[in-house]
């Protein structure tokens, strides 16, 4: 059927705290819960080619689910104009989970539309948890999860924020304006700005200047989008490597995992690269564009790739795609 499921785009994914479930959200505001155990180690052979979700529920207000993160207690859903929390217990025991809490993204008088929550990240410190949200209003908003309060906003992008990534006291945000900003949320200050599209080696004017995603570890920062995927030295902010062997027309996901870089976007493949630019593996994906890639080690060693198709690809090693989930609603 050429229906809305056929044109599904999955924007976000996260694992449950126990790691046994995968939760994914799409542009229609649906959130699907998948049983990984069942998908990876089916107890009985099924006739279905693709594993279907345990159940699918509608997010509040039916807006697209652009981002998902989870902590030990809540599934945190970023839609349009608000972030809401669902108790994990209610999700795993009930097919119609109720919203436990919600936080509004602060709006300003001159804005016509509510801003999208394009990306979420959680930073843990001592006993507080801070939620970092990259939003459509060109800002990065920080919330204290314990108090449920908006604590601060980072203002520095000239267009909407595509993604945020946080580690330690540092946050990196990448935006449609082509900027990659580093922030220190303890000091409430911007520490560095990168504009890859200004670098002649990296710019791809036909794709635009936007940066789809950025990620960093102790020494390195990786980012990509309209410009080529590139590696930067974190302290000196110098360009170290340009990954021109990646075939893509736009990078949307970048992650660093130990000594490898994972990258995906509008490309037939999802890439695993070394820092020096060698391609370890290129995985064929079901999606035209990969918008979300997450991985866990325990209890399953699995990478989940989702994007513009009704399918989610699972890889239990880094070599090939071995299971495919489908976003189709199970018939009750």
């Amino acid at each position: 059927m050429v229906d809305r499921c056929f044109y599904n785009t999955t924007l976000s994914q996260t694992f449950s705290p126990c790691g046994n479930y995968l939760v994914a959200g799409n542009i229609y505001g649906q959130i699907a819960v998948f049983d990984l155990q069942n998908a990876l180690e089916p107890s009985e052979p099924t006739s279905d080619q693709f594993s279907k979700p345990l159940f699918v529920f509608q997010s509040a207000r039916d807006k697209s689910v652009s981002s998902l993160v989870s902590n030990s207690k809540f599934l945190i859903v970023g839609t349009v104009g608000e972030v809401s929390g669902y108790d994990w217990k209610s999700i795993l025991s009930n097919k119609n989970p109720k919203v436990a809490w919600s936080l509004q993204i602060p709006t300003y008088r001159d804005s016509l539309e509510k801003s999208d929550v394009n990306s979420l990240a959680i930073v843990e410190n001592s006993n507080d948890q801070t939620l970092v949200a990259g939003c459509g209003d060109k800002k990065v908003h920080l919330f204290n999860l314990r108090q449920g309060k908006h604590t601060q906003s980072f203002d520095g992008h000239d267009n909407y924020v595509h993604s945020v990534y946080a580690s330690g006291s540092q946050v990196v945000s990448s935006g449609e304006d082509g900027k990659v900003c580093m922030w220190d949320w303890r000091q409430c200050a911007k520490t560095a700005v990168l504009e890859p599209h200004l670098n002649d080696q990296l710019a791809r004017p036909h794709l635009g200047k936007w940066v789809g995603d950025a990620c960093f570890n102790d020494d390195w920062l990786v980012c990509g989008g309209g410009p080529y995927l590139s590696l930067w030295h974190l302290r000196s902010m110098d360009l170290m490597n340009k990954f021109s062997n990646v075939e893509d027309s736009g990078i949307h996901v970048v992650r660093i995992c130990d000594d490898r870089i994972m990258a995906g976007g509008t490309s037939p493949y999802f890439y695993h690269l070394s820092f020096s630019g060698e391609i370890f593996t290129q995985l064929e994906t079901s999606s035209l564009t990969v918008y979300s890639a997450i991985f866990e080690e325990k209890p399953f060693h699995v990478t989940c790739l989702a994007g513009s198709s009704s399918h989610i690809d699972l890889c239990t090693n880094f070599k090939y795609r071995d299971q495919i989930l489908t976003f189709e609603e199970p018939k009750s």
């Binding site: 924007l11 542009i27 016509l112 999208d116 394009n118 459509g136 936007w210 564009t289």
Partner: peptide
């Protein structure tokens, strides 16, 4: 139109 592109999907 307000925004020529919007969201992660542009």
């Amino acid at each position: 139109f307000i925004q020529p592109v919007r969201g992660k999907t542009r």
